[in-house]
Design a protein around this nucleic acid. Structure first.
Lengths: 242, 242
DNA sequence: TGAAAGGTGCCATATTTTGGCACTTTTTCG
DNA sequence: CGAAAAAGTGCCAAAATATGGCACCTTTCA
């Protein structure tokens, strides 16, 4: 049997039985006492907390709090989780938020360093405005689902984005933009970016954007937003935006 | 060199070089061409998307979007993340929330089935009230950090919780409670639970609770809250609470 | 005191991983 | 076209690693 499977089986057995001896585990899992002992050491190295009582009547006991999950997440999923937690933290203190941070910190640590930097920069690009008193929480507004793939690619890979835009007068133009931030002023959502053709900072209402397409291969620094850490703060956006 | 480390090195090299041939990878990582090929297969099995161009001038290319992280999270951390995302979803549509859900679904899938049920039940026990129009988001209130450990244990393990309580008249009593829910009516936080001594459903203001302690070894079903899925809905809590 | 429990060190054996080789297919370049 | 360079496959012996057995230690409890 596979090492991994066997160790999983040991964890399951410990969970089920509550407490168990090495000999019993060896029998149930179908391996030798010596191997179970080695597996226990390996599991402890992996972070499982396994108490052991020496002596007659003793045994092993798995601390249920130490159960671990090793879900594999793609980078976009990690981004999404980070945004959730950041948004929640912005909304105020909730219980367990420190734990959530700890979890995210672990996830971050497992990402390559450059991705972490991207992550933080991206997070700084998402600006969520507060709802006005008369608005309900469901008035937060949303983003057309069809726009998402292109936007995700553009933001995560820092590519230009090309789209059709219908301005306030109804005139159709095609734009090519370095996306700098997503600005949510409920219920309206905006893309804030540097318009390559017009050589200027522009904002675009999401609901007027059509056929967005990330321009593959292009990459840019956020050089038009000369803020520290490559991130454009909300206050400055509002200023430019006004 | 360790298999895992070598495969990580291959991923790093692919990321750094953008595109690379097997021979070059083998040289850089310090192993044989054959082994690199086997590792590429393993990495693909693990979910990495590695494009390959056959023929002169070809090579391997790692799809950066397919990068995965395999952070190990403890159960409490997963709980915390879930709460964050659930709270965010309650607040309205945010970008990438589907991705966050997908990420959490993956995490959930990697947990043992009974833990998932606990998770959902627990999530149903957290009731976050909406802020009134005149309140700022920072008025959400919070929970004394010292209370957290005992509460986490109690909720996650479903143990009783014992604490000193100072009621509205200032009288000190010691309580023993089966914790049923955390109710947040900004800026006040409440513990809602079944008081064992008084044999009744009671609510306790968090800021009047002192010296909480999870009573190890005890376990109870949420039998006093006869709602489906062992979960006490917000509306019902408000009713009982009023 | 003896039995039952966890834990360690050692070593021969079993299993898995690795590297080398010969080979195939595909593509590009001269 | 033909040679070169690339991915990919199958096979096998050698190297590395994991396993199981054994002897032995300490602790605990009846």
């Amino acid at each position: 049997m596979n090492v991994r499977l066997r160790q999983d089986a040991i964890v399951r057995t410990l969970r089920r039985n509550g407490t168990s001896t090495i000999n019993r585990l060896a029998q149930e899992v179908g391996t030798s006492r010596r191997t179970v002992l080695r597996d226990i050491i390996a599991l402890r190295d992996q972070g499982y907390v396994i108490h052991s009582d020496v002596g007659r009547g003793g045994g092993l006991q798995l601390d249920p709090q130490s159960m671990q999950t090793t879900a594999k997440l793609s980078v976009p999923e990690v981004f999404a989780l980070l945004i959730s937690v950041a948004a929640m933290r912005a909304a105020g203190n909730l219980p367990f938020s420190e734990l959530a941070d700890a979890g995210l910190a672990k996830i971050e640590k497992s990402l390559p360093a450059d991705k972490v930097k991207d992550l933080r920069a991206f997070l700084g690009c998402l600006h969520i405005g507060q709802l006005s008193p008369s608005q309900n929480l469901s008035d937060m507004g949303t983003m057309d689902r069809d726009l998402l793939p292109a936007f995700e690619t553009a933001f995560l890979d820092r590519t230009f984005i090309r789209f059709d835009y219908r301005d306030a007068t109804g005139k159709q133009t095609q734009r090519e933009v370095e996306p700098q931030a997503i600005l949510i002023l409920p219920p309206l959502w905006y893309l804030v970016g540097w318009d390559l053709k017009r050589e200027g900072f522009r904002h675009f209402r999401m609901d007027r954007i059509g056929q967005p397409e990330a321009v593959a291969g292009t990459r840019f620094r956020r050089r038009h937003v000369p803020f520290e850490d490559d991130v454009c703060p909300y206050s400055e956006l509002q200023k430019r935006f006004a």
